[in-house]
Design a protein around this nucleic acid. Sequence first.
DNA 1: GTTTTTGTTGATTGACGAGTCAATAAACTT
DNA 2: AAGTTTATTGACTCGTCAATCAACAAAAAC
Lengths: 193, 193
Amino acid sequence: MPKLGAEPIRRAALVKATIETVGEAGSLEVTVAQIARRAGMSSALAHHYFGSKEQIFLAAMRSILTLYGAEVRGALSTATTAESRLRAIVSGSFAPGSFRRETISAWLNFYVLAQTLPEAHRLLRVYQRRLRSNLRHELRPLVGARAEAVARGLGALIDGVYIRAALADGAPDRAYALKIVTEYLDRELEVRG
Amino acid sequence: MPKLGAEPIRRAALVKATIETVGEAGSLEVTVAQIARRAGMSSALAHHYFGSKEQIFLAAMRSILTLYGAEVRGALSTATTAESRLRAIVSGSFAPGSFRRETISAWLNFYVLAQTLPEAHRLLRVYQRRLRSNLRHELRPLVGARAEAVARGLGALIDGVYIRAALADGAPDRAYALKIVTEYLDRELEVRG
DNA sequence: GTTTTTGTTGATTGACGAGTCAATAAACTT
DNA sequence: AAGTTTATTGACTCGTCAATCAACAAAAAC
């Protein structure tokens, strides 16, 4: 029953299934067969399109990072002032598309993958650098020389809130996560003297 | 060559080897044989003392959390005022005994383990609750009603700084990690009006 | 000095899983 | 209609690894 032009559809289905499977299992120790079954195909086909399990994981990770980037860009698109752009980056980081149970769990696992797989490591570094650079850029006019430090702190705090959400039971509380990070930002933006 | 009273020595050696092996591999996908070899014994003996790989991991995780707790308590022992105690908890969190490359990497992996293993989950929750409760207690006289929120923020930030250190290349920079968290604390402790 | 307890391992079992391959089938090409 | 390309899978290979077991060794107990 070969429909032509199946490749992109199959690849997308596998990426989606990978995130779901890893997220649900809470572990990278999932089999290609499990992923393939969830994506509605044989494991042989998964290997046919991706070549190896490693490549499947990398594609899934790229997908997560791409989605994340898109959500931040989306949030940024309506913001004009430095402060509103800053807040857009933060709230974009917790957009409902990314801040989901399985996505967070998959994210955590990909973090671990980056310890082993150089390409995964590279991907994560690119994301981190871009985030920090964006934050720094908007922070400069607001906190001057402290921009670098605040950008790093914000980045770390976002990661921390993420992984804590991975461990919490029940659905991740978006408003609550946002509140923690926003309050940090508020403190830093307060005029002091 | 059976030396008597070997059990506690063997167990300790296995726990140490587990942390090192997981830390170096950057993954939980290490074999019992690898761990046992590093600890200088056969894999059969590792199974003899721990029963299963799962139990070995749990013992290693308990060890990490115990060490962490001890370092925080140690730092606390010399502090008297609320603020100095608060700072002791923070700097204790980055004590050189805990804030090591392999320990951090192992920590991250155990975080993942907590997604799968209920007992690991429980252990992590106990640690988180205790940390938050300690922080809240010292924060109360300093920031009043904000104590709860600040305690949560600090906890998340510490975790975030930890996992970022796991990804950084080179030795983890203790002073730098401490600086990020300390500055957060400084902002929160500033008198505002 | 024999029995029991504690320590220890090599060899084996049994399961599982990544990746390959040969075969089949439907579409497109000429 | 014959040939080519794309899609698809069941069956198989080969390696790996957790866990078990039988056997051996030394100390303790009796």
